[in-house]
Design a protein around this nucleic acid. Structure first.
Lengths: 200, 200
DNA sequence: GTCTATAGCCGGATAGAC
DNA sequence: GTCTATCCGGCTATAGAC
């Protein structure tokens, strides 16, 4: 006997998965409702339009990803390790999903662009938050212009995830990890940390 | 009086732009035909299904982008400059389009995934070709494991283009250019560049 | 809040005249 | 090769009973 919030939650969850697998425009509301075990009437009770459901999906995915990244970073105190934990998270995720899905935020942002302005704004906020977390880990190590370097690292990860999905191989994300190591070595050399080894 | 090929070409051109602006699923065949000054009958004469038009669009975009990149790289002989020319191309492109569009191949690959397998294969081939060009420029300088480094660079550029579009600022692509410089400095230090030593 | 039913439109695709 | 006309299904969204 589903409480109101349960139904709402299940709708967002179903929509998240379907949008993730097949994109936003390609998925109809009927399928979302069915997949959530609800009727279209309930869907429209909670979400006045498809756009609004998209916003809820973006918020959910954003919170999930940032939460998982926070969890991966916590427990590490070294700046370099904290940054690499983000890469590890994405790698583990791609591995678990058989390289089949990619990052839901990237996929949606590529498809949507500016056609749903409110969605674009939230996606931008997600990227900013992600960059902020990585920049924070670098700043704590006294890195100069950490924001820009963090933006480059996030870009590399996003692109690597995309390539990983397309190529169905973990190669791209592994290459990105190595390149991240190079960037981090230059930005925060061993002298300023403790000891760092080179991997290749 | 449009020749057969003209109509076909115009259809592909219109579809390319519309898919680029709004995505694949969101654009209908009627709009594409109208925008090309043709009727739906003509469209179906050349393309048995929407999928087939998508393949033609992907081929066109791939050829256009790779052609522009080849043009940007030619004229430079230094490996580092050849790689940076790719970044310059993307930057110039984002600047010209007001950061509004992004890379058509990335956008489509994010939306389509595996739902149109033939399309996914061609997108993968495009990425491979792009990585190959950058790897070629690095190999000529005797870089070790140029393929992996090139993959990381392509990933960073793709991600930066995506972030540039979302943030509507050239910042991300500029940050990526700086980071690319760091990677290239480590991979092919100045000493080896002018000698063009061959390693194996 | 949940459900059924349906409006009204637009999607991809087809048939066949010219 | 181009065009008109049309089928049929799915789409978003709405109306209103319960």
């Amino acid at each position: 006997m589903p409480h109101a919030t349960d139904t709402r939650e299940r709708l967002i969850e179903s929509a998240s998965e379907l949008f993730w697998e097949r994109g936003y425009a390609a998925v109809g509301l009927a399928e979302i409702a069915a997949s959530a075990g609800a009727r279209q009437g309930s869907l429209y009770h909670f979400f006045p339009a498809k756009d609004d459901l998209l916003l809820a999906v973006i918020d959910r995915q954003s919170a999930l990803i940032l939460g998982a990244i926070d969890a991966a970073m916590s427990g590490r105190t070294d700046g370099r390790e904290r940054v690499m934990a983000v890469a590890d998270f994405y790698r583990g995720f791609m591995e678990r999903t058989g390289c089949g899905l990619g990052c839901p935020m990237s996929n949606l942002s590529g498809e949507i662009g500016d056609s749903v302005p409110r969605a674009a704004a939230r996606i931008a906020a997600f990227y900013a938050a992600l960059v902020g977390r990585i920049a924070g880990a670098m700043e704590s190590q006294g890195v100069f212009e950490a924001d820009q370097q963090a933006a480059a690292i996030v870009a590399m990860l996003q692109g690597a995830v995309l390539q990983t999905r397309v190529s169905k191989t973990l190669g791209p994300i592994d290459s990105a990890r190595v390149a991240m190591g190079v960037i981090l070595d230059v930005a925060m050399p061993a002298a300023e940390r403790e000891l760092s080894v080179q991997g290749a």
